[in-house]
């Protein structure tokens, strides 16, 4: 019997294949962190993670949010929450509602889901906004370097 059960388990594992599959949540959370551009942060397309946050990367984060790239909240423990909805939001994929808070350090109450290794956040209320406090331009300049158009750099 034990052998048959083992074979059954083995057959199931083989057919089902590996899968995170299950969604954890919803759970209510209070998250404090910086609003970031997830593509540049995860892909490294503009450089390392320290350079694609804060004031150095603010304009790029605005461009990406306007371009419909998902916005995230980088929490103090390093976890990134992909924001799927923002309180009173206009269309998320157009990014309008999110432009205003790009690079800001916020505290938000919301609903958290974890699926297949990715954290998702529905922001129900931004309870505090400290503005931009991560002054990365002091170390990195601006990322990307063409952030300021030539007409502004060389008036």
């Amino acid at each position: 019997m034990k052998i048959r059960l083992t074979f059954a388990a083995l057959a199931f594992a083989t057919l089902a294949g590996p899968s995170f599959a299950a969604t954890e949540g919803p759970s209510t959370v209070k998250i404090t962190g910086e609003v970031i551009d997830t593509w540049c942060y995860f892909s490294g397309v503009m450089g390392g993670p320290d350079a694609v946050v804060g004031s150095a990367h603010h304009t790029c984060a605005v461009w990406c949010a306007a371009g419909g790239i998902p916005v995230g909240v980088l929490a103090d423990d390093g976890t990134v929450y992909m924001v799927m909805k923002l309180e009173g939001a206009a269309p998320l994929a157009d990014g309008d509602a999110l432009l205003e808070i790009q690079s800001d350090r916020i505290t938000a109450n919301g609903v958290h889901y974890l699926r297949d290794g990715i954290n998702y956040l529905i922001v129900e209320e931004v309870v505090d906004n400290e503005g931009i406090v991560n002054l990365t331009h002091e170390d990195f300049g601006v990322v990307p370097p063409f952030t300021f158009p030539k007409s502004v750099r060389e008036p």
């Binding site: 899968s19 599959a21 995860f42 461009w63 990406c64 371009g67 790239i69 998902p70 297949d116």
Partner: peptide
């Protein structure tokens, strides 16, 4: 059955 978030299209000018 993994949910894969799609962040970018192929264009290089900040496009989702």
């Amino acid at each position: 059955n993994v949910l894969v978030p799609v962040l970018k299209n192929r264009q290089s000018s900040f496009n989702g």
